[in-house]
Structures are given as structure tokens and as C-alpha cells.
């Protein structure tokens, strides 16, 4: 299972990839995570790739992904061609307008909800993580929550967990 998170710098794209890979390891699976570095990660399109498998992971730079999580139009346009046919596109519907493609589309107002419910747009990535955890089931919910609690700044654990739970609930409704 290959997942690609993409968006622009400051949206917590790398963090989302790290949490996902780390949670998969917590589940006892093999996982790798890579990300774009350098000038690319600021302002422009930024990506973070996670591969999860029961077997050894040989492919370090996958040509195709099974799940693309897009948090900006620019990143969507850059990476949509890497989503395999029949793959899942999960996107923030206020930030991305997808074209007609042969993919399964899942939309959520992650950034808007983060702003309205938590007053902090930064937790949009947690809402998105909850959402895709629910629709794809590639990592266990428990491991995701545990990993989030271990890695977010002290004092923000509850907000991040609540954001994840909100996304998860919304995901289970569309499944």
C-alpha cells in the first residue's frame, strides 16, 4: 500500500506521513517514509510518501500510489498522474478542484473544519488522517491515535485527538 500526502509547506504534510508510517510500524507492519526536501518543501508543492507492507519493502521511490491525499491544487495537479487507476483520491474540497479521472474520490472540508471547530487550521492534517484511516483501514485507529499522542506538542494532545476522531467519524459515514 503506497500513500502520498501532498500540499504546501506548513500544512503538516510531512507530519502526516510520519504519523502514518510510525503507526503502521506500531501495528507490526513494515513501513517506509520519504519526503521532498530543500527549497521544494517551502511554499511550493510538498510531498511525503509512505509505503506499508507485510513484506520487505524494496521499492523506495514508487512510480504509482494507491492513495493520494491532496491538500492543495498545485500539489494535486503535480501528483495526480502518480495515482494508479482505481486508486483513492482524498482531498480538501475547499482547496482542490479535481478533474474527472478514473479514481475513487473522497472529499472533506478538513481545513475549514479545523478552523471552525478547533480554531487552528494546523489540525486539518489530523482531520484528514482520521478520515483516510476510516475510509482505507490501512492502519489501525488505535495505533494512529497512540502515535499522534506521542508526537504532537505537549498540551495539544486532546485537540489533535479530537480532530482525528472528527475526521474518522466523517469517514465512516461515507464508506
Amino acid at each position: 500500500m503506497n500513500v502520498r500526502f501532498c500540499g504546501f509547506g506548513g500544512q503538516g504534510i510531512v507530519m502526516a506521513g510520519y504519523i502514518t508510517g510510525s503507526a503502521a510500524v506500531r501495528d507490526g507492519k513494515k513501513a517506509t517514509q520519504t519526503q521532498s526536501y530543500g527549497s521544494e518543501s517551502r511554499g511550493g508543492a510538498c510531498k511525503s510518501d509512505v509505503a506499508i507492507s507485510e513484506e520487505e519493502i524494496y521499492e523506495l521511490e514508487s512510480e504509482e500510489v494507491d492513495l493520494l491525499v491532496a491538500m492543495s491544487q498545485q500539489a494535486y495537479e503535480r501528483y495526480i498522474k502518480t495515482l494508479r487507476k482505481g486508486g483513492i483520491l482524498a482531498f480538501d474540497e475547499d482547496l482542490v478542484t479535481p478533474k474527472k479521472t478514473a479514481h475513487k474520490l473522497y472529499k472533506i472540508k478538513a481545513t475549514d473544519l479545523a478552523h471552525k471547530k478547533f480554531g487552528r487550521e494546523i489540525v486539518a492534517n489530523m482531520i484528514m488522517l482520521g478520515y483516510i484511516t476510516s475510509i482505507s483501514g490501512f492502519v489501525s485507529k488505535d495505533s494512529m491515535i497512540q502515535t499522534i499522542l506521542d508526537n504532537v506538542p505537549k498540551g495539544t494532545e486532546k485537540m489533535n485527538e479530537d480532530a482525528f476522531e472528527l475526521g474518522h467519524r466523517l469517514g465512516s459515514k461515507v464508506k
Binding site: Y18, A31, T32, T34, Q35
Partner: peptide, 9 residues
């Protein structure tokens, strides 16, 4: 750099 910047178990 590939292995240096790779996260893994």
C-alpha cells in the same frame, strides 16, 4: 541520501 533520509522500522 536515499537511506539517510528514509524513515523505516
Amino acid at each position: 541520501g536515499e537511506i539517510g533520509h528514509l524513515r523505516e522500522r
